[in-house]
Amino acid sequence: MEDVKKGSVSDFIMSILLLIFGIALIISSLNMKVFNTFLDAPGFFPMLLGIIFIFLGLMMLISSIRRKGPQQMGHVFGKANLGAFFKHIEFKRVMILIGLMVVYIFGLIGRMHFAIATAIYLFCTMWFLKSTGLVKNIIISVVTSIVISVVFRFVFNIPLP
């Protein structure tokens, strides 16, 4: 039952986003340069997309209003529900996993050798996931990152970041 409510609310939010996005697309495509005629202007197709997004957004909006999407907003975004959501174990897990990826991709890679960055990332992620024991974790992280680096660099001749 919760899913039905969430569905109508997420559709409601999405429909608003689509409407805004569609309008923004039309405005920005009308601002694009027209070379010969509007027929082959760079903005023509994006403008069409904007119209389609507005149409789809309206369809979704009507559907979500019929499903009482706006009324459910209060419930879904209520303090109790939102608090529960942020404390939810799944949410935390995903956030931390994403955080680890961000550190790996934007923080470590490029600042040190790919193998070292990868080993650190693998160790931390598997440690967080409690995938295996500490010693095994270290062995797996180090060996995998070295194997990956060597295989891709020298066997497949692929540049490493």
């Binding site: 790996y104 992620t125 598997m126 996931l129 409690k130 995938s131 295996t132 797996i140 990152s145 990956i148």
Partner: peptide, 11 residues
Amino acid sequence: KREILMPIIVP
């Protein structure tokens, strides 16, 4: 274990 396999896919 998928907890070991999936992180390795990231690199």
